[in-house]
Amino acid sequence: MSLPFSKTERVNLSTAEVLLACGDPEGLNIMGEMFAGFGVHTPRRCLTMADAQTSVQERILNLMVVDSALADGEGYDFISWLRRSEITPNCYAPVILITGHTRPSQIFRGRDAGASFVVRKPVAPLIMMQRIIWLLNDQRKFVTSPGYCGPDRRVKALGPPVGSKGRRHDDLSAQVGAASTPNLEQDEIDALFKPRAVI
């Protein structure tokens, strides 16, 4: 199977502070082993939302991996709390949400809670590494608003969702206006593609 990333891609997670949260002890253990294999030293392991909240308050974290099922609540609620906690810089840290069985009503809940990525179980190490590498290159801006706090949900720069007018000041209209200058001649277009040295 071809790798979803370059063979030579290097990742140094040895100094990264990583929080792992999962309500099932065995699930948490599997997650812990996976990240130990990735080179993470002593990640913070949390079974409960209360533990995870304490960790967020106590130390600076660089990555959080949160299962949707915690022992005393739901991962969605933890992420929502985190994003609105105003505990900087942790509230801006990347969060990978892992879901198991997902009720139809919860499909968009992870995204709307502010997760950077939602990954469905089973999560093989290859998939997790692929998502981490994606996050390393993630340049999305952060959004805070009354209805949502988290990374920009528009992953691709394609403008507002189809059929909607767009709520942002820099959203362009889908209507293309009439040309305001004459069309380029063919040789002018060719010149754009064939740059020549100027002597």
Binding site: F5, E9, R10, V11, G37, F38, P125
Partner: peptide, 12 residues
């Protein structure tokens, strides 16, 4: 650090 492929193998 380590290269991603080796990290995945170590995790497995």
């Amino acid at each position: 650090g380590r290269n991603a492929e080796a990290a995945v193998k170590a995790a497995e």
